Amino acid sequence: MSSETQPSEPSKPPPPPSSSSTTSPPSTSASTSSNAVPRSVENDPARTGFDPQKAWWVNYFKILTGGVTDEGVFHYREWRYRVHEKRDCARCEEFRDWAFAHSPTVRFMREKVEALNGRLDKDNVVCRRCPARLTEDGQVHRSSGGFSPEHGILICANEVRNRGHMEDTLAHEMVHAWDHLRWKVDWMGDKDLKHAACTEIRAAMLSGECRWAREAWTRGNWKLTQQFHDCVRKRAAQSVLARPRCKDDVQAVKVVNQVWDSCFSDTRPFDEVYR
């Protein structure tokens, strides 16, 4: 990015204010008060059946034979991500470099960012492991990447499935970078959550993450009508909900609806939705 988005410490980028996040269905029966912020759940081998002190194949066999709870499977997955962090980051960087060299969408967005005096390259598009959180309300919170005006783009190496997924994730965050340079977005919603809602709508719409094939084969959504609109609305609301200034999912949906017509019709810097 420009001088204000140069990563001052590339090896340890902070959590980005804007992220591509997902929330999985409940995997435990724990619950908390609706007014309290759910706490993260730590692993207890006696409760979950997963014991990180044992060999991976022992735990994997227990999973196959039903000896590990859903909560334990979550902790096993995070444990294996820690073990394979170096491998995952190297693979992520390979996919990133491929996207910069060969993806028409990523190359186009890179040119448009440069036209606004910004810069995106391997120095401020970094791959790191992003730990997921399991909270007491049974929700799994994951992120595939994020954008920070001060540091650039973070790609969550442990969540990148393949080159296509990298292309979608990188395009999503590059739309945020372009929006920041063009309009100076209020990322945290300190003044108005509508800024965050608008850029999340545009990123979900333009990145390709909501195209029919991705929704159908990856997320199991086989609807033919309104699938694209529903996906963009849902993913934008999830991202707005992650903002500290957003009170609840009701407010997130309300804000997305307030800016929907103007932001969904705005395809800049593209002429139309290509992906």
Rank of each mutant, 00 (worst) to 15 (best):
S148Y: 00
T105S: 13
R110Q: 15
V41R: 04
S21F: 04
T218V: 15
L170Y: 04
D249T: 09
E159A: 15
L193F: 06
E215L: 15
S144V: 02
F100I: 01
V113Y: 01
C92Q: 05
E71P: 07
R133F: 08
A213E: 12
A55V: 05
K254P: 00
G189Q: 04
A252G: 09
D44K: 12
R219A: 12
D249I: 11
K112I: 03
K112H: 06
V83N: 04
S148Q: 00
F95M: 15
V160T: 11
I155F: 04
S27L: 15
M174C: 07
V185W: 06
Q258P: 00
R235E: 09
R39P: 00
P269Q: 02
P16I: 06
H176W: 02
A90P: 00
T225D: 12
N124I: 03
G67A: 12
C246W: 09
I153M: 04
G152F: 01
V250F: 06
R214D: 09
L120A: 12
D121T: 01
V83Q: 13
G189E: 03
V73W: 03
Q6V: 13
R82L: 08
W178P: 03
V113I: 15
E85K: 13
Q251I: 12
T28Q: 02
A204M: 09
R91A: 14
R243A: 11
T218L: 14
G145F: 08
S148F: 01
V68T: 07
E42Y: 07
R268K: 13
W222C: 03
D230I: 02
C231T: 02
R129N: 10
Y81I: 01
V126Q: 05
T32R: 12
H141R: 14
S31W: 03
S8V: 14
K86G: 04
F108H: 09
R161F: 05
T169Q: 07
C231V: 05
S148I: 01
G118V: 01
F100C: 00
G146N: 05
S24K: 10
D271K: 15
E173Y: 05
I153H: 01
N221A: 12
F270R: 05
F147K: 00
V125M: 10
V160C: 08
R110N: 13
G189S: 04
W187A: 09
L224D: 01
Y60C: 04
T65W: 01
E111K: 15
F147T: 00
A197N: 03
E215K: 14
S265A: 15
S20R: 10
A203S: 13
D271E: 13
E94W: 05
P45W: 02
H84F: 10
R268P: 00
L116S: 01
P14S: 11
E4K: 13
D51A: 03
L64N: 07
G49C: 06
V126A: 05
K122V: 12
A90N: 10
G164A: 08
C198I: 01
H141E: 11
S207K: 02
T69L: 08
V253C: 10
R142K: 12
T69G: 06
E93Q: 15
E4R: 12
E209L: 13
A90T: 11
Q6A: 15
E159Y: 13
T28N: 05
R202E: 02
S103F: 08
D88E: 15
L134P: 11
W79Y: 15
S8K: 14
F74K: 04
G145S: 02
